[in-house]
Design a protein around this nucleic acid. Structure first.
Length: 426
RNA sequence: GGGCAGGUUCCAGAGCGGCCAAAUGGGGCGGACUGUAAAUCCGCUGACUACGUCUUCAUAGGUUCGAAUCCUAUCCUGCCCA
């Protein structure tokens, strides 16, 4: 199966420029995707572009991962309602380095291979271009009319917040990236999320006018949940690829909680499973959705891909202890090291041991540890039956917690709704 | 530079002298149900030493027994004109 067919059945193809498929069939093609250095780590939203590059490389083509050291300084206005705040140079450099390190794990950079992946940073070529050079040599080729016609900027032009010139320039900067890679590295293809279509086309246009060359592009749909809400966010916030920001356990949980509808499309997008196997699995899942076969497999595949087998195994183990019913007794039987392992990734808090010896009311404990932002909220949730101590529901706000609640004489497992917190006596 | 509209609690958006910690919707959080899902239903959603008290409606002053609501100045945003 060729790359395009592969991506097509996986539902990873949105728009494609005519001739793209032919180009890919014709020869080994160099293609790039840009990553925004908005944070020090990539998050699962960036997983799709990463996977595109991986698929590309698997199909024998050469992937370039571009980190936007320069574009990050400007900020992409595409489909956004407001201007993003600017990052300072230090942060930006740190972010670029962090992202680079992560990308290196997913692609094959072995220079001995003809289609070895490469990493580029657009700051490297932009830092030497002066403003005047740019507007003369590049700005000249693209009209403002053309740029304004883009859907991606419409929201801002018609909206209440306006758009700064800086942001307006963005598509030209990104377009220049493509032009640069086209001339410097014979890169003929750009990929990206469908929100990037406008920017990408500006690039191919620039290549056509400035270099009289032909370049290609395709985009993949932006991942959405079936209910229309944003993909990749949980109550705890963004799901990151960096295990220091999102523990492998939390990462695993994120995928496990996918809805049935979403799981069917995610398993195609986020795993490398082959079509027949995927189809069989979907069918089996539909027979008994309660088993959540799809979610389990999806969570497994993605967790192993990002964090490795060992972390996956641990995540499964931890989940079973936390989610199985009637585990209050099981909890008491855990050894200290088991307890710590299982609670890895669970937020931890400390409380002075002397407080517990004296006896502490549950509300103060919850507020002072920081599990709740205020006593009011702690009180309300306890009254609503939303707090458990060591897997046993707290009956009322006058409950006193003392040393007898300590597991292994050291820990208390608190629950606020579905989330867990480990409090350590010190 | 001129004219106009506006800045309210997480967001949107009411309120325009006391009945306002501030309608309504969304979001969030919790509960029931359940498949660690979806849908549905219910409760909570400024803080505290909690049937009361305190701090909030861009900022700083002022009028008033009393202001988110009136006045003055300042800052910010958008639209229109130059």
């Amino acid at each position: 199966m060729n790359l395009i067919d592969e991506l097509r059945w996986r539902g990873m193809l949105q728009d494609m420029m005519p001739g793209t498929e032919e180009q890919l069939k014709k020869e080994m093609t160099t293609a790039y995707i840009g990553f925004d250095p908005t944070a020090e780590s990539l998050h699962i939203g960036s997983l799709v572009p990463i996977l595109l590059l991986v698929h590309l490389q698997k199909a024998g083509h050469k992937p370039l991962a571009l980190v936007g050291g320069a574009t990050g300084m400007v900020g992409d206005p595409s489909f956004k309602a407001e201007e993003r705040k600017m990052l300072d140079l230090d942060t930006l450099q740190k972010n670029v380095a962090g992202i680079k390190a992560q990308l290196e794990r997913f692609l094959d950079f072995d220079a001995a291979k003809p289609n070895a992946a490469e990493m580029v940073n657009n700051f490297d070529w932009f830092q030497h271009i002066t403003f005047l050079d740019f507007i003369r040599d590049t700005g000249k080729h693209i009209t403002v009319n053309y740029m304004m016609a883009k859907d991606s900027v419409k929201k801002r032009i018609e909206g209440d917040n306006g758009m700064s010139f800086t942001e307006f320039t963005y598509q030209l900067i990104q377009g220049y990236d493509f032009y640069h890679l086209y001339t410097a590295k014979n890169c003929k293809l750009q990929m990206g999320g469908s929100d990037q279509w406008g920017n990408i086309v500006t690039g191919t246009e620039l290549i056509r006018r400035k270099a009289r060359g032909e370049a290609f592009a395709f985009t993949c749909p932006l991942i959405k949940k079936a209910d229309g809400t944003k993909f990749g966010k949980t109550e705890q916030g963004t799901v990151w690829l960096d295990p220091k920001r999102t523990s492998p356990y939390a990462f695993y949980q994120f995928w496990l909680r996918t809805t049935d509808v979403d799981a069917e499309s995610y398993i195609k997008i986020f795993t490398f499973m082959e079509q027949p196997e995927v189809e069989a699995l979907i069918e089996e899942h539909r027979k008994d959705p309660g088993q959540r076969l799809l979610q389990k497999r999806l969570a497994k595949e993605v967790t192993v891909f990002i964090h490795g087998e060992e972390n996956y195994n641990f995540a499964v183990e931890a989940a079973s202890i936390l989610y199985n019913k009637n585990t209050a007794e099981l909890l008491l039987s855990l050894s200290e090291s088991d307890l710590i392992d299982v609670m890895d990734g669970v937020p931890q808090f400390e409380v002075p041991r002397t407080d517990l010896e004296a006896g502490k009311d549950i509300v103060s404990l919850l507020a002072e540890t920081g599990i709740f932002p205020s006593k009011s909220e702690a009180r309300k949730t306890v009254q609503g039956g939303g707090v458990s101590v060591n897997k046993i529901k707290v009956p009322g706000i006058d409950m006193i917690v003392n040393t007898s609640s300590l597991l292994r004489d050291k820990y208390i497992l608190l629950q606020k709704g579905k989330s867990y917190f480990l409090v350590k006596a010190v």
